[in-house]
Measured scan of single mutants.
Amino acid sequence: GRPPQPKSVEDLLDRINLKEHMPTFLFNGYEDLDTFKLLEEEDLDELNIRDPEHRAVLLTAVELLQEYDSN
């Protein structure tokens, strides 16, 4: 089946190999997954995450988090 739900933002970023963005998220108040899963493209602009590939991966991760919630 699906991988288990990540336990933290750090756990999530670790899985998608984008842990380099951890300080950015923490500094901007994305300390838990409840906050993280509200992330949208405009937020990525504000966080200055410009890499299109990173953005795509992050937004996909957000969608997956929302799916875990609805099940």
Rank of each mutant, 00 (worst) to 15 (best):
G1H: 11
G1Y: 14
G1F: 14
G1S: 14
G1W: 11
R2C: 00
R2M: 08
P3Y: 13
P3R: 09
P3C: 12
P3V: 13
P4N: 14
P4V: 12
P4D: 15
P4R: 10
P4E: 15
Q5M: 12
Q5F: 14
Q5C: 13
Q5S: 09
Q5P: 10
Q5Y: 15
Q5E: 07
Q5W: 08
Q5V: 11
P6N: 03
P6L: 08
P6T: 05
P6S: 06
P6E: 07
K7W: 01
K7M: 09
K7G: 09
K7S: 12
K7E: 13
K7Y: 06
S8Y: 01
S8V: 00
S8C: 04
S8M: 00
S8N: 09
S8P: 03
S8E: 00
V9N: 03
V9M: 07
V9F: 04
V9E: 01
V9Y: 01
V9R: 00
E10Y: 08
E10H: 06
D11M: 00
D11A: 05
D11N: 05
L12S: 04
L12V: 07
L12D: 03
L12K: 00
L12F: 11
L12Q: 05
L13V: 00
L13D: 03
L13K: 04
L13S: 01
L13W: 00
L13M: 04
D14A: 11
D14E: 14
D14H: 08
D14Y: 06
D14N: 11
D14L: 09
D14R: 08
D14K: 10
R15F: 10
R15V: 08
R15Y: 09
I16R: 03
I16C: 12
I16D: 04
I16Y: 13
I16M: 09
I16F: 10
I16W: 05
N17R: 05
N17T: 02
N17M: 06
N17I: 02
L18G: 01
L18S: 03
L18M: 14
L18V: 04
L18T: 04
L18D: 00
L18Y: 02
L18R: 00
K19L: 14
K19V: 09
E20F: 07
E20Y: 02
E20A: 04
H21L: 15
H21V: 05
H21Q: 04
H21F: 11
M22E: 10
M22H: 09
M22C: 11
M22L: 15
M22A: 13
P23S: 13
P23T: 12
P23R: 10
P23K: 13
T24R: 09
T24D: 05
T24K: 12
T24Y: 00
T24C: 07
T24W: 01
F25L: 10
F25A: 02
F25V: 03
F25C: 04
L26S: 09
L26E: 11
L26N: 06
L26G: 04
F27T: 15
F27P: 05
F27D: 15
F27I: 14
F27R: 15
F27V: 15
N28L: 02
N28D: 02
N28T: 02
N28P: 02
N28F: 08
N28W: 06
G29M: 04
G29W: 00
G29E: 02
G29Q: 00
Y30P: 03
Y30K: 01
Y30V: 10
Y30N: 02
E31Q: 13
E31I: 09
E31C: 13
E31K: 14
D32F: 03
D32A: 06
D32V: 03
D32Y: 03
L33M: 05
L33E: 00
L33D: 03
L33S: 02
L33Q: 04
L33F: 04
D34L: 05
T35L: 07
T35C: 10
T35F: 01
T35R: 14
T35K: 15
T35D: 14
T35Q: 13
F36A: 04
F36G: 05
F36M: 09
F36H: 05
F36N: 04
K37Y: 00
K37G: 05
K37I: 02
K37V: 03
L38A: 12
L38S: 13
L38H: 13
L38W: 09
L38G: 12
L38C: 12
L39F: 00
L39A: 01
L39M: 09
L39R: 02
L39Q: 01
L39V: 08
E40W: 00
E40D: 13
E40M: 10
E41G: 07
E41D: 08
E41A: 12
E42N: 12
E42T: 13
E42A: 14
E42D: 12
E42C: 10
E42G: 13
E42I: 07
D43K: 11
D43P: 00
D43A: 09
D43Q: 11
D43M: 06
D43T: 11
L44N: 02
L44Y: 03
L44W: 03
D45Y: 07
D45C: 08
D45G: 02
D45T: 08
D45M: 10
D45F: 07
E46Q: 05
L47E: 03
L47N: 02
L47W: 00
N48S: 08
N48T: 01
N48W: 03
N48V: 00
N48P: 02
I49Q: 01
I49G: 03
I49M: 02
I49L: 01
I49N: 00
I49E: 03
R50D: 12
R50I: 11
R50M: 14
D51S: 07
D51Y: 03
P52G: 04
P52H: 07
P52E: 09
P52R: 07
P52M: 07
P52I: 06
E53Y: 06
E53D: 13
E53M: 08
E53C: 10
H54R: 02
H54L: 02
H54K: 07
H54V: 11
R55D: 03
R55W: 00
R55K: 14
R55Y: 00
R55E: 06
A56D: 12
A56Q: 14
A56C: 10
V57A: 15
V57Q: 15
V57I: 12
V57N: 14
L58W: 02
L58A: 06
L58Q: 07
L59E: 05
L59D: 06
L59H: 06
L59W: 02
L59Y: 02
T60V: 04
T60S: 15
T60P: 05
T60I: 00
T60Q: 15
A61E: 14
A61W: 09
A61K: 04
A61M: 09
V62L: 05
V62H: 06
V62C: 10
V62A: 12
V62M: 05
E63R: 14
E63S: 13
E63K: 15
L64R: 15
L64W: 14
L65R: 02
L65F: 04
L65H: 02
L65K: 02
Q66N: 14
Q66E: 05
Q66P: 05
Q66G: 10
Q66S: 09
Q66V: 06
Q66I: 06
E67P: 07
E67L: 07
E67S: 13
E67R: 11
Y68M: 13
Y68T: 13
Y68G: 14
Y68H: 14
Y68P: 13
D69S: 09
D69V: 00
D69E: 13
D69T: 09
D69I: 02
D69R: 06
D69N: 09
D69H: 09
S70T: 15
S70L: 00
S70F: 07
S70C: 11
N71Q: 14
N71C: 13
N71R: 14
N71M: 12
N71G: 13
N71D: 15
N71H: 13
